[in-house]
Design a protein around this nucleic acid. Structure first.
Length: 195
DNA sequence: GTCCGGATCACT
DNA sequence: GTGATCCGGACA
């Protein structure tokens, strides 16, 4: 059983491409988060790309203690705290020592964790980068870890028979680089954070 | 040392 | 439109 799970994981080499190519390919893949032996599965429905050419990227100016993980190995995690309250999760792309990552902005969860409040609508509990991290207990303790079974977080490939239309547009919430069209989402999906 | 503002979200 | 709430990074 564990054997088949390992085979389902996307390998790190898959992320060794520019972020703007990885980001649309992540749509339809599944982010799996394991907590106390339970696997919570979320279909990735919205992503954004960031990289060294981009003034909105945390590593744009230079490497610092805070953004160190975004320069890490492809297929590892960059998790940071935003506005003092929320966390955001990125998958590091391209090559080591180059800043490049994909922000996971929204998931469609198959199972709603018990700590999520009842009133939240199922399709919207992970509709936004801060919300999905809260729902899946993702915080900076995961920063710089590789996606893997051992990290209790990994990504599985898109099912071959899963079909959808992809929309490409500009990113959300930025003061710089707002004109770069590096946001992708599954058209008409109810879990997308914003239309 | 001090200050500023952010890849957010919920509420008015 | 605004408040919540943290802390890294810029500048002195």
């Amino acid at each position: 059983m564990a054997e088949s799970l390992i085979n389902l994981q996307i390998k790190p080499e898959w992320f060794a491409r520019s972020a703007d190519r990885v980001a649309p390919d992540l749509l339809g893949c599944t982010l799996v988060r394991q907590i106390e032996g339970i696997s919570y599965r979320g279909l990735i429905v919205e992503t954004e790309a960031y990289d060294a050419t981009d003034p909105a990227c945390h590593g744009y100016k230079r490497q610092t203690e805070r953004n160190r993980a975004i320069f890490g190995q492809p297929g590892s995690l960059y998790v940071y705290l935003i506005y003092g309250i929320y966390h955001c999760i990125n998958i590091v792309c391209d090559r080591t020592d180059y800043c490049s990552a994909v922000l996971i902005r929204a998931l469609d969860l198959d199972l709603i964790p018990e700590w999520v409040s009842e009133k939240e609508k199922r399709s919207r509990v992970a509709a936004g980068p801060g919300k999905l991290c809260r729902a899946l207990q993702i915080d900076r303790s995961l920063n710089s870890l590789p996606l893997s079974l051992g990290s209790n977080i990994w990504i599985e490939p898109k099912a071959v028979d899963l079909e959808f239309s992809v929309v490409q547009t500009t990113r959300i919430g930025l003061t710089q680089g707002a004109d770069i069209p590096w946001r992708w989402y599954i058209q008409n999906h109810p879990a997308v954070s914003k239309y």
